[in-house]
Design a protein around this nucleic acid. Structure first.
Ligand SMILES: [Mn+2]
Ligand SMILES: [Mn+2]
Ligand SMILES: [Zn+2]
Ligand SMILES: [Zn+2]
Lengths: 135, 135
DNA sequence: AAGTTGTTTAGAACAGTTCTAAAAACTGAA
DNA sequence: TTCAGTTTTTAGAACTGTTCTAAACAACTT
């Protein structure tokens, strides 16, 4: 058989999180298929559609824990709402306004040359490139 | 004489805004000196320190109007809070976490090559580069 | 199974921002 | 100048996204 279904229970345990029903359901939605960009509200709607009752607070808890565990990264592109990105590798984003859609593009084709050195007393943490486009 | 003090009344009128006491005071704080990055709360504290009573709603109104008029641009770098930037020309940002400070750097030294073409049916609107650094 | 600890939950609380509608201020014409 | 018409300001309510609280519940250990 091709494409063994990942063991979410083990993956959660590996990062020190108990594999509860809620977390496993959320992990499945997030990590089972292609990379995704979700909002808390959107993921909440999705998981509730599976008929497993999960509170919004739990979705926020899980997203924050997954992010802290390095399973997700948080992307800030619009005021007042966070996106969580299942792609934790180096890449950048298209942001389609006003829809609010995020699309990845690989960073290895993109060259950013001539970045100035960080201000005194600081270390580089990450470079985000957001290409904003409109319909 | 060198460095004529700008006529904020005229500048406001030029973009179709009545030069009220509040707007002139805010424009002075924003545009009189070097380029700035302000938050609504921060600017509100500043203007109130001049002993002119200005409500927070007015600060938000003015910032949004100035942005719509092209006098400011809005920068989103952190969840839950907008920065307004008096530098409307092409440039990019350092963002110092966790302080929340923003610093400009010119875009003309920075080369971004290999950006993919925008998704079907969209036009490029702006490219934001945010260099996140930590203390 | 019992005990322990970690998790979920509903709802309250919170932060940043926008809205409401009444009072105040700006403007152009008289 | 005064006046009428219009825009702006304001206090406070409302709203949105997110976090907190503390009690019920579920997962793990023995
Ligand atoms: Mn967060
Ligand atoms: Mn806004
Ligand atoms: Zn992404
Ligand atoms: Zn700037």
């Amino acid at each position: 058989m091709s494409g063994t279904s990942p063991d979410f229970t083990a993956r959660l345990r590996a990062v020190g999180l108990r594999p509860t029903r809620q977390r496993v359901a959320l992990a499945r939605l997030l990590f089972e298929g292609e990379h995704r960009h979700v909002t808390a509200e959107g993921l909440h709607a999705e998981v509730r559609a599976t008929r497993l009752p999960v509170s919004l607070a739990t979705v926020y808890n899980a997203l924050n824990q997954f992010r802290d565990a390095g399973l997700l990264r948080e992307v800030v592109v619009a005021p007042g709402r966070s996106y969580f990105d299942t792609n934790t590798g180096h890449h950048h984003h298209f942001f389609v306004e006003p829809d609010g859609e995020l699309h990845d593009f690989p960073s290895d084709k993109v060259t950013i040359a001539g970045l100035p050195t960080p201000p005194k007393g600081t270390r580089l943490s990450r470079v985000d490139v957001i290409v904003r486009v409109r319909r």
